Every structure is written in C-alpha cells, then in structure tokens.
Computed example of a mutant assay.
Amino acid sequence: MSTTFPRTGKKTRGYSVSEVEKFLATARGAYDESDATAALTAEQIRGMAFSMTKNGYSPEHVDAALERLEDAFAARERAQALAQAGTQAWAEKAQADSEVITARLRRDAGHRFSRVSFLSLGYNRADVDRFAGRVVKYFDNDFPLTVDDVRGAVFRPQRGGYREVQVDAVLDGVVEVMLAVR
C-alpha cells in the first residue's frame, strides 16, 4: 500500500492512487532523465488531471506537489533554454508572451473573452475582469502578484459568463511567463 499522500477515506472521493503513482513514476524518469521515453514539460504538468475515486489521494496534497513539480520542471526548462539561446532570446520570448497576454487583458471589461450562452454557466465576468486588472498591473508596474495567486484564482459561476477554457488558457500563459522570469 502506497503512502505517498494522505488518503481521503472510504466515503470521500480523491485522486486515483494508481493514476497519481503512474504519473509520479513518469515524472521521476523524465526529471532525472533515466527514462528516455518519459518526456514531460511544465506545461504538461500544469494540465494534468486524474480520475476521482473513493479513498483516493487528497487532491489538495497532490495539487501542491504538482505545483512544486511544475516549478522544478520550469526552472530546468529555463536553464536549458538560456544555455541554448542565451539570456537575450529568453527575455525577448518572455516579453513577447507577456505582451500577448496583456493585449487580451486590456480589452474592454466584459469583452476580454468569449461568452458561453445565457443558458450555460461560465466564469463571472466581473471577477475575471477584476483579476485581469491585477495581472496587467503586475506586468506593467510590478504590482505584487505571485504564481500561487494566479494558480489559486477562483471565479464565481455566472450564466452567460466568460468561457472557462479561454480564461484558464490565459492564466496558464501568465503562470508560464511568471515562472520564466523568476
């Protein structure tokens, strides 16, 4: 029986133990480069999802570990890119990525992302717009904002709200730029 993370209990759902263990084995092989077939990136780690099962691993503990793992892979990817392309090229790419993100987030309030139909739930537009303002201030004026703030951003549901997939993709881009310039 594995004890990598606390379990949720027999009546509570958590992440599938076998899926998490399999992913962690793949991540170990990819990170220490002992498994040539296990190519893994920080972006793939950020998008990782597991099935929910009773008596599974505690999602909060696994998510925290995935965030640390993503940080480690991002730092390694940054070091490799700096060694290959140089500091100037790396900084230019991060700058270009941040400009794409801020261009989207500077759109008019209520129009930064496409909306779901009025009958469907999306992210609350006012919540997202408010957070978008914080992100723009971060990029423009070094407003205090951390990777954890972005990862932990929560938006209320709203009928006719912003399309979640689009908002999440931009937030992933923000995390990627923030990790790149650490």
Rank of each mutant, 00 (worst) to 15 (best):
A42N: 07
S16K: 12
H111S: 12
S117E: 14
H61N: 15
K137L: 11
I45G: 03
T4R: 14
R46V: 00
G56N: 05
A89W: 06
E60R: 14
R68N: 13
G161R: 04
F5H: 09
P144K: 04
S114W: 00
L179D: 13
N141E: 09
R28L: 15
L82K: 15
M48Y: 01
D142G: 11
V135H: 07
S16W: 05
F23E: 05
F155G: 10
E21V: 06
E33H: 11
A42P: 00
T37Y: 05
L145Q: 06
A30L: 01
E21N: 13
R159C: 03
R13V: 13
T53Y: 07
E21P: 04
A180M: 10
H111Y: 10
E77D: 05
D127N: 10
N141S: 12
D172E: 12
L40E: 00
R46Q: 10
R28P: 02
S98K: 11
S34A: 14
Q166D: 04
N55G: 06
F50N: 01
V177H: 06
V167P: 00
E33V: 08
L105V: 02
S16A: 09
A153I: 05
L171W: 08
Y57F: 13
V116Q: 01
D71Y: 08
G152W: 09
T4A: 13
Q95G: 11
G86T: 09
D168P: 01
R182L: 12
E33W: 01
R107V: 00
A85L: 14
V181C: 08
T12D: 09
L69N: 01
A81H: 15
A64D: 10
Q158V: 06
G110S: 02
S51H: 08
T102D: 02
N55F: 08
V136W: 01
R125S: 06
K10F: 09
A42H: 07
W90L: 11
K11H: 14
Y57L: 04
K93T: 15
M52A: 14
D129R: 03
A169R: 09
P59W: 05
L105Y: 03
F50L: 04
G56D: 13
M1C: 07
M1V: 07
D108S: 15
G160A: 03
D129W: 03
Q158K: 13
D140Q: 08
T26D: 13
A109K: 05
S51K: 11
D32S: 11
R104I: 09
W90A: 15
K11D: 15
D172H: 08
D108Q: 15
L69A: 03
V100H: 06
F73I: 02
D108R: 10
S120P: 08
A169N: 03
R112S: 00
S120C: 12
S18Q: 12
A74D: 09
D63I: 08
L121W: 11
L40Y: 01
N55K: 07
H111M: 08
